[in-house]
Amino acid sequence: MKGACFLLAFNLFVLASSFAFAYDPSPLQDFCVAIKDANNGVFVNGKLCKDPKFATANDFFFSGLNLPKNTSNSVGSVVTPVNVDQIPGLNTLGISLARIDYAPNGGLNPPHTHPRATEILVVLEGELNVGFVTSSPNNRLIAKTLHPGDVFVFPIGLIRFQQNVGKTNAVAVAGLSSQNPGVITIANAVFGSNPPIKADVLSRAFQLSNEIVKYLQSRF
């Protein structure tokens, strides 16, 4: 009986630990402003930390998120991140955000994933079709058309996208549950890796000819 209780407790501990380490850790201090100078900081959670007595308001500040971006690129969208690299004071706090600008008539934030964060998106302007795909074996698409004031949640790690389906510019702001959520854009990662993935690997995976795969790799 004692052995069974110990095994149950151990399993619960492992389960709890997996949840605890799945997200940014909780801070054990008021803040830990990130710095790059190895001679004047302590390494914590991927960043060096400034001595708290030298922290200033600018360590917790970012300006310009109201400014529209030029979306005349191949996908018709621009992401303006506000994470620990833009606001050093976000270090260890487990949050970040981003502004996304979309060109009219199809501007796309292409299929991608944030490996370290759940995302919550609010539409400020325009009309967006958004969605994410559930994991195997179902790979079910969950999608919806959003309008200003609408909010949509993308679960951590799942592939998601947003596309402007209106005739005017669209703008959204996303909140993310990590100071540095990371981003993997699927097409860029698959066809634009360095060095490239072998064409025969991709041709079999995507059921395409080697020639088409090599063409797609040349585009990235």
Rank of each mutant, 00 (worst) to 15 (best):
K69D: 10
G89T: 06
F62M: 08
N70D: 15
F31P: 00
N40I: 01
A117P: 00
C49L: 10
K53W: 03
P104H: 15
Y102K: 10
D30N: 08
G106S: 12
N91G: 09
I100F: 11
D37H: 08
N83S: 12
R116V: 04
I120K: 02
I95V: 15
N45Q: 05
P110V: 14
L93V: 12
S74V: 14
S77Q: 08
Q29R: 10
A103N: 11
L108R: 06
D51Q: 04
F61V: 04
S74C: 03
N58V: 04
N39K: 03
I87A: 12
D59P: 14
T71N: 09
K50L: 13
A98E: 09
T113Q: 00
L67P: 04
I95C: 06
H112N: 14
P27A: 01
G76S: 03
N83R: 07
S77Y: 13
I95N: 06
K69H: 12
N91P: 04
T80S: 13
K53T: 15
A98H: 11
S26L: 07
G46H: 09
D37N: 15
A22Y: 07
S72N: 13
P111V: 10
N40L: 02
F54M: 02
N73P: 11
R116Y: 14
D59Y: 14
C32P: 01
I87W: 06
H112E: 11
V33D: 00
V78N: 03
G89W: 06
L90A: 08
S96D: 06
L90D: 09
F43Y: 10
V78T: 08
I87P: 01
N73D: 04
D85S: 09
P115Q: 11
F43S: 02
G94D: 14
P115H: 09
S77L: 04
S72R: 10
